[in-house]
Protein backbone atom coordinates (compact mmCIF):
# COMPACT_ATOMS: atom_id res chain seq x y z
CA UNK A 1 0.00 0.00 0.00
CA UNK A 2 2.97 2.37 -0.50
CA UNK A 3 1.09 5.19 -2.15
CA UNK A 4 2.82 7.37 -4.77
CA UNK A 5 2.35 10.47 -2.62
CA UNK A 6 4.36 8.90 0.19
CA UNK A 7 7.19 8.16 -2.22
CA UNK A 8 7.20 11.76 -3.36
CA UNK A 9 7.36 12.93 0.21
CA UNK A 10 10.31 10.70 0.84
CA UNK A 11 12.20 12.14 -2.08
CA UNK A 12 11.36 15.75 -1.39
CA UNK A 13 12.37 15.98 2.21
CA UNK A 14 15.87 16.14 3.50
CA UNK A 15 16.64 13.43 6.05
CA UNK A 16 17.29 15.95 8.82
CA UNK A 17 13.79 17.34 8.71
CA UNK A 18 12.17 13.96 8.49
CA UNK A 19 9.24 13.77 10.91
CA UNK A 20 9.18 10.83 13.28
CA UNK A 21 6.18 9.18 11.70
CA UNK A 22 8.07 8.64 8.47
CA UNK A 23 10.36 6.19 10.21
CA UNK A 24 9.68 2.58 9.28
CA UNK A 25 7.54 0.72 11.79
CA UNK A 26 10.29 -1.84 12.22
CA UNK A 27 13.89 -1.65 11.15
CA UNK A 28 16.04 -4.74 11.53
CA UNK A 29 19.74 -4.38 10.89
CA UNK A 30 22.27 -7.20 10.49
CA UNK A 31 20.30 -9.42 12.86
CA UNK A 32 21.73 -12.85 13.63
CA UNK A 33 20.13 -15.12 16.20
CA UNK A 34 21.39 -18.52 17.27
CA UNK A 35 20.10 -21.00 19.81
CA UNK A 36 23.41 -22.21 21.21
CA UNK A 37 25.38 -23.18 18.10
CA UNK A 38 22.29 -23.71 15.98
CA UNK A 39 21.81 -20.73 13.69
CA UNK A 40 18.22 -19.60 13.38
CA UNK A 41 18.43 -16.24 11.68
CA UNK A 42 21.37 -15.04 9.65
CA UNK A 43 22.15 -11.44 8.99
CA UNK A 44 18.63 -10.20 8.39
CA UNK A 45 18.21 -6.64 7.11
CA UNK A 46 14.64 -5.49 6.97
CA UNK A 47 12.46 -2.41 6.93
CA UNK A 48 8.75 -2.77 7.49
CA UNK A 49 6.56 0.18 6.43
CA UNK A 50 3.97 1.69 8.77
CA UNK A 51 0.25 1.20 8.32
CA UNK A 52 0.29 -2.06 6.42
CA UNK A 53 -0.68 -5.68 6.83
CA UNK A 54 2.59 -7.56 6.63
CA UNK A 55 3.05 -11.32 6.35
CA UNK A 56 6.16 -13.21 7.34
CA UNK A 57 6.29 -16.34 5.25
CA UNK A 58 8.71 -19.24 5.05
CA UNK A 59 9.11 -22.97 5.59
CA UNK A 60 9.11 -24.64 9.01
CA UNK A 61 12.22 -23.76 10.97
CA UNK A 62 12.84 -20.69 8.83
CA UNK A 63 13.00 -18.52 11.95
CA UNK A 64 9.69 -16.69 11.49
CA UNK A 65 8.69 -16.81 15.16
CA UNK A 66 12.26 -16.10 16.15
CA UNK A 67 12.22 -12.94 14.04
CA UNK A 68 9.11 -11.74 15.90
CA UNK A 69 10.65 -12.65 19.25
CA UNK A 70 13.87 -10.88 18.34
CA UNK A 71 11.85 -7.75 17.52
CA UNK A 72 10.36 -7.99 21.01
CA UNK A 73 13.71 -8.64 22.64
CA UNK A 74 12.50 -12.04 23.84
CA UNK A 75 15.49 -13.85 22.36
CA UNK A 76 19.04 -12.54 22.55
CA UNK A 77 20.69 -11.71 19.24
CA UNK A 78 24.29 -12.56 18.38
CA UNK A 79 24.70 -9.45 16.27
CA UNK A 80 22.56 -6.66 14.93
CA UNK A 81 19.78 -4.48 16.28
CA UNK A 82 16.09 -3.81 15.94
CA UNK A 83 14.38 -0.45 16.05
CA UNK A 84 10.68 0.21 16.42
CA UNK A 85 9.61 3.55 14.95
CA UNK A 86 13.22 4.68 15.06
CA UNK A 87 13.91 3.81 18.68
CA UNK A 88 15.15 0.69 20.45
CA UNK A 89 12.36 -1.62 21.52
CA UNK A 90 12.87 -0.89 25.21
CA UNK A 91 11.71 2.68 24.62
CA UNK A 92 8.82 1.72 22.37
CA UNK A 93 7.42 -1.12 24.42
CA UNK A 94 4.02 0.47 24.94
CA UNK A 95 3.68 0.94 21.18
CA UNK A 96 3.93 -2.76 20.49
CA UNK A 97 1.26 -5.44 20.98
CA UNK A 98 2.12 -9.13 20.90
CA UNK A 99 0.00 -12.15 20.04
CA UNK A 100 1.95 -15.33 20.85
CA UNK A 101 1.20 -18.70 19.31
CA UNK A 102 -1.90 -20.20 20.82
CA UNK A 103 -0.05 -23.37 21.81
CA UNK A 104 2.48 -21.40 23.84
CA UNK A 105 0.28 -21.39 26.96
CA UNK A 106 -1.65 -23.92 29.03
CA UNK A 107 -5.32 -23.27 28.29
CA UNK A 108 -6.32 -25.33 31.33
CA UNK A 109 -5.08 -22.46 33.49
CA UNK A 110 -7.74 -21.44 36.03
CA UNK A 111 -8.77 -18.11 34.58
CA UNK A 112 -11.52 -16.51 32.48
CA UNK A 113 -11.45 -14.97 29.01
CA UNK A 114 -11.96 -11.53 30.54
CA UNK A 115 -9.04 -12.10 32.89
CA UNK A 116 -6.70 -13.00 30.03
CA UNK A 117 -7.70 -9.89 28.09
CA UNK A 118 -7.15 -7.76 31.20
CA UNK A 119 -3.54 -9.02 31.19
CA UNK A 120 -3.02 -6.81 28.12
CA UNK A 121 -3.52 -3.85 30.48
CA UNK A 122 -1.09 -4.96 33.21
CA UNK A 123 1.58 -2.67 31.78
CA UNK A 124 -0.58 0.42 32.25
CA UNK A 125 -2.20 -0.70 35.50
CA UNK A 126 1.20 -0.61 37.16
CA UNK A 127 2.72 -2.33 40.16
CA UNK A 128 0.84 -3.20 43.35
CA UNK A 129 -2.57 -2.34 41.89
CA UNK A 130 -5.59 -4.38 41.01
CA UNK A 131 -7.41 -3.90 37.71
CA UNK A 132 -10.14 -1.30 38.28
CA UNK A 133 -13.67 -1.23 36.92
CA UNK A 134 -12.46 0.97 34.09
CA UNK A 135 -9.83 -1.62 33.09
CA UNK A 136 -12.44 -4.33 33.20
CA UNK A 137 -14.70 -2.32 30.91
CA UNK A 138 -11.86 -1.74 28.46
CA UNK A 139 -11.19 -5.48 28.42
CA UNK A 140 -14.89 -6.21 27.88
CA UNK A 141 -14.98 -3.77 24.98
CA UNK A 142 -12.02 -5.59 23.41
CA UNK A 143 -13.77 -8.94 23.85
CA UNK A 144 -16.80 -7.37 22.21
CA UNK A 145 -14.69 -6.43 19.18
CA UNK A 146 -13.78 -10.07 18.64
CA UNK A 147 -17.37 -11.18 19.27
CA UNK A 148 -16.75 -12.89 22.61
CA UNK A 149 -18.48 -10.55 25.04
CA UNK A 150 -20.97 -13.25 26.00
CA UNK A 151 -18.17 -15.66 26.86
CA UNK A 152 -16.22 -13.18 29.00
CA UNK A 153 -16.58 -15.22 32.17
CA UNK A 154 -16.02 -18.63 30.60
CA UNK A 155 -13.04 -20.59 31.78
CA UNK A 156 -10.57 -20.49 28.92
CA UNK A 157 -10.36 -24.26 28.44
CA UNK A 158 -14.07 -24.26 27.58
CA UNK A 159 -13.43 -22.09 24.53
CA UNK A 160 -12.86 -23.52 21.07
CA UNK A 161 -9.49 -23.10 19.38
CA UNK A 162 -10.77 -20.22 17.29
CA UNK A 163 -12.24 -18.53 20.35
CA UNK A 164 -8.96 -18.91 22.23
CA UNK A 165 -7.17 -17.29 19.32
CA UNK A 166 -9.65 -14.42 19.45
CA UNK A 167 -9.07 -14.02 23.20
CA UNK A 168 -5.38 -13.53 22.45
CA UNK A 169 -6.27 -10.96 19.78
CA UNK A 170 -8.54 -9.14 22.23
CA UNK A 171 -5.70 -9.07 24.74
CA UNK A 172 -3.50 -7.44 22.10
CA UNK A 173 -6.27 -4.94 21.27
CA UNK A 174 -6.36 -4.02 24.96
CA UNK A 175 -2.72 -2.99 24.64
CA UNK A 176 -3.88 -0.34 22.12
CA UNK A 177 -0.60 -0.55 20.25
CA UNK A 178 0.62 1.05 17.04
CA UNK A 179 2.45 -2.06 15.94
CA UNK A 180 1.10 -5.57 16.36
CA UNK A 181 3.34 -8.61 16.13
CA UNK A 182 1.29 -11.79 15.73
CA UNK A 183 2.55 -15.33 15.69
CA UNK A 184 0.26 -17.33 13.41
CA UNK A 185 -3.04 -15.60 14.23
CA UNK A 186 -4.82 -17.81 11.70
CA UNK A 187 -3.47 -21.15 12.94
CA UNK A 188 -6.12 -23.77 13.66
CA UNK A 189 -9.21 -21.57 13.28
CA UNK A 190 -12.27 -22.33 11.19
CA UNK A 191 -13.15 -20.42 8.03
CA UNK A 192 -15.65 -18.10 9.75
CA UNK A 193 -13.17 -17.14 12.46
CA UNK A 194 -10.47 -16.61 9.84
CA UNK A 195 -12.74 -14.11 8.05
CA UNK A 196 -13.54 -12.35 11.32
CA UNK A 197 -9.86 -12.13 12.27
CA UNK A 198 -8.97 -10.79 8.84
CA UNK A 199 -11.66 -8.10 9.10
CA UNK A 200 -10.24 -7.12 12.46
CA UNK A 201 -6.68 -6.91 11.14
CA UNK A 202 -7.84 -4.77 8.22
CA UNK A 203 -9.64 -2.49 10.65
CA UNK A 204 -6.41 -2.11 12.60
CA UNK A 205 -4.55 -1.29 9.42
CA UNK A 206 -7.18 1.19 8.28
CA UNK A 207 -6.83 3.06 11.57
CA UNK A 208 -3.13 3.47 10.91
CA UNK A 209 -1.69 0.52 12.84
CA UNK A 210 0.89 -1.82 11.48
CA UNK A 211 0.26 -5.55 11.71
CA UNK A 212 3.05 -8.06 11.23
CA UNK A 213 1.84 -11.67 11.18
CA UNK A 214 3.62 -14.97 10.76
CA UNK A 215 1.51 -16.72 8.14
CA UNK A 216 1.44 -20.30 6.92
CA UNK A 217 -1.12 -20.40 4.17
CA UNK A 218 0.61 -19.33 0.96
CA UNK A 219 -2.69 -19.32 -0.91
CA UNK A 220 -4.10 -16.42 1.08
CA UNK A 221 -0.99 -14.23 1.33
CA UNK A 222 -1.80 -12.16 -1.77
CA UNK A 223 -5.44 -11.78 -0.76
CA UNK A 224 -4.90 -10.90 2.91
CA UNK A 225 -1.68 -8.90 3.03
CA UNK A 226 -0.16 -5.75 1.56
CA UNK A 227 3.48 -6.52 2.19
CA UNK A 228 5.36 -9.77 2.49
CA UNK A 229 8.62 -10.92 4.05
CA UNK A 230 9.99 -14.15 2.63
CA UNK A 231 12.28 -15.77 5.13
CA UNK A 232 14.38 -18.86 5.28
CA UNK A 233 16.97 -18.37 7.99
CA UNK A 234 18.05 -15.39 5.98
CA UNK A 235 15.93 -12.81 4.24
CA UNK A 236 15.03 -13.98 0.76
CA UNK A 237 12.92 -11.02 -0.24
CA UNK A 238 10.69 -8.35 1.26
CA UNK A 239 8.37 -5.85 -0.33
CA UNK A 240 4.83 -5.20 -1.57
CA UNK A 241 2.95 -8.42 -2.20
CA UNK A 242 2.31 -7.51 -5.83
CA UNK A 243 5.98 -7.32 -6.75
CA UNK A 244 7.59 -9.58 -4.15
CA UNK A 245 5.26 -12.55 -3.81
CA UNK A 246 6.41 -14.14 -7.04
CA UNK A 247 6.88 -17.75 -8.02
CA UNK A 248 10.60 -17.18 -8.35
CA UNK A 249 10.94 -15.75 -4.84
CA UNK A 250 8.82 -18.54 -3.41
CA UNK A 251 11.02 -21.09 -5.11
CA UNK A 252 14.05 -19.45 -3.55
CA UNK A 253 12.36 -19.44 -0.14
CA UNK A 254 11.10 -22.99 -0.11
CA UNK A 255 13.45 -24.66 -2.54
CA UNK A 256 16.88 -23.45 -1.49
CA UNK A 257 16.76 -24.61 2.09
CA UNK A 258 19.48 -27.20 1.95
CA UNK A 259 21.94 -24.86 0.28
CA UNK A 260 21.45 -22.19 2.91
CA UNK A 261 21.87 -24.64 5.75
CA UNK A 262 24.92 -26.24 4.25
CA UNK A 263 26.64 -22.96 3.71
CA UNK A 264 25.72 -21.61 7.10
CA UNK A 265 26.93 -24.70 8.90
CA UNK A 266 30.13 -24.70 6.95
CA UNK A 267 30.76 -21.06 7.78
CA UNK A 268 30.08 -21.75 11.43
CA UNK A 269 32.54 -24.61 11.51
CA UNK A 270 35.23 -22.48 9.90
CA UNK A 271 34.32 -19.52 12.12
CA UNK A 272 34.28 -17.09 9.25
CA UNK A 273 31.52 -14.73 8.29
CA UNK A 274 29.24 -15.76 5.46
CA UNK A 275 29.79 -13.77 2.33
CA UNK A 276 27.17 -12.21 0.15
CA UNK A 277 24.31 -12.44 2.54
CA UNK A 278 23.18 -8.83 2.38
CA UNK A 279 19.73 -9.64 1.14
CA UNK A 280 17.25 -7.37 -0.56
CA UNK A 281 14.26 -7.72 -2.78
CA UNK A 282 15.12 -9.28 -6.05
CA UNK A 283 18.82 -9.58 -5.38
CA UNK A 284 20.45 -12.64 -6.92
CA UNK A 285 21.94 -14.96 -4.34
CA UNK A 286 25.45 -16.25 -5.00
CA UNK A 287 24.29 -19.86 -4.69
CA UNK A 288 21.09 -19.63 -6.62
Amino acid sequence: MATPSKTTLLEDETPREAPARRKPAVEVHDLTVAYRTQPVLWDVDLELPEGQLIAIVGPNGAGKSTLLKAMLGLVPSVTGWVQIFGEPYARRRSWVGYVPQRESVDWDFPTSALDVVTMGLYGQIGWFRRPSKRHRETALACLDKVGLRDLAHRQISQLSGGQQQRVFLARALAQDARLYLMDEPFAGVDATTERAILTLLKELRDTGRTVVAVHHDLQTVAEYFDHVVLLNMRLVAAGPVTTTFTAENLQRTYGGRLTVLTQATEALLQKRPIEGTAGGPGEKQPWS
Binding site: L72, L74, S94, V96, M119, F128, R130
Partner: peptide, 22 residues
Protein backbone atom coordinates in the same frame (compact mmCIF):
# COMPACT_ATOMS: atom_id res chain seq x y z
CA UNK B 1 -0.65 -10.09 47.64
CA UNK B 2 1.54 -7.30 46.29
CA UNK B 3 2.68 -9.15 43.18
CA UNK B 4 -0.47 -11.22 42.67
CA UNK B 5 -1.28 -10.16 39.12
CA UNK B 6 2.34 -10.34 38.00
CA UNK B 7 2.71 -13.83 39.48
CA UNK B 8 -0.47 -14.85 37.70
CA UNK B 9 0.97 -13.62 34.41
CA UNK B 10 4.25 -15.40 35.15
CA UNK B 11 2.38 -18.66 35.62
CA UNK B 12 0.13 -18.22 32.58
CA UNK B 13 2.15 -16.50 29.87
CA UNK B 14 5.61 -15.37 30.85
CA UNK B 15 6.67 -14.35 27.32
CA UNK B 16 3.71 -12.00 27.04
CA UNK B 17 4.69 -10.49 30.37
CA UNK B 18 8.17 -9.81 29.00
CA UNK B 19 6.64 -8.17 25.95
CA UNK B 20 4.78 -5.82 28.30
CA UNK B 21 8.12 -4.88 29.78
CA UNK B 22 7.58 -6.64 33.10
Amino acid sequence: LLFYKELKLLAFDSAFGSSLGL
